[in-house]
């Protein structure tokens, strides 16, 4: 197969597609750039939707099903936009032993959504993680990227209520 010589046309004139194209170019548009390119899509847009997958498939000259198969294999890739705030509960063993299940239950009650879902008002996405590698601080909850160790349901409630009640 001939390697692609011209750069693929982005789905829109959104400048963020340039970042994605740059990633593909850095890897010579080779098929093994797929995961790195999906990372770059997610970093630029926050999620990887069909339109992005189509662009990546064209850019790397890969079959659509291979791109979809990889994107859905890896849990790190979000196929839908996330809420304004994210709340990630670590369910690693140490966190589990130290009560992460109760923390998660409390957050589910509070937000009314299950892990992997976003509240209908798009304010909060509730997520769970395998292990953040911060077991010494168990249980760990990451609020908008900030690691909170020894998380107590009370402190979390205050924070999440702040997100949901403020406009």
């Amino acid at each position: 197969m001939q390697p692609i010589s011209t750069k693929p046309t982005p789905p829109s004139d959104d400048k963020r597609w340039r970042i994605v194209t740059a990633t593909m170019r850095r890897h010579g548009f080779r098929p093994d750039a797929l995961i790195e390119t999906l990372h770059s899509v997610q970093e630029a847009f926050g999620y990887v939707d069909d339109e992005a997958m189509r662009f990546v498939a064209r850019g790397l000259q890969l079959p659509p099903s291979r791109v979809y198969g990889a994107a859905t294999f890896y849990n790190y890739f979000m196929l839908k936009p996330q809420g304004e705030h994210t709340c990630v509960v670590c369910l690693g063993t140490a966190c589990y032993i130290k009560g992460a299940a109760e923390v998660l239950e409390q957050l589910q009650l509070l937000t009314g959504v299950k892990p992997g879902e976003t509240t209908p008002d798009k304010k909060v996405s509730l997520l769970s993680a395998r292990c953040m590698g911060a077991c010494g601080l168990a249980p760990v909850v990451v609020l908008d990227g900030e690691v909170n160790g020894m998380a107590s349901p009370e402190a979390l409630t205050a924070k999440v209520e702040e997100w949901t009640h403020h406009d």
Partner: peptide, 25 residues
């Protein structure tokens, strides 16, 4: 550097190789 993407099985060496090749692990 190559980034993993949230798949524990990629710690298995043949799965890790598949992942670096841009495939399902």
């Amino acid at each position: 550097v190559r980034l993993g993407a949230g798949a524990f099985v990629c710690g298995e060496e043949t799965a890790l190789i598949a992942s670096i090749e841009g495939r399902r692990g």
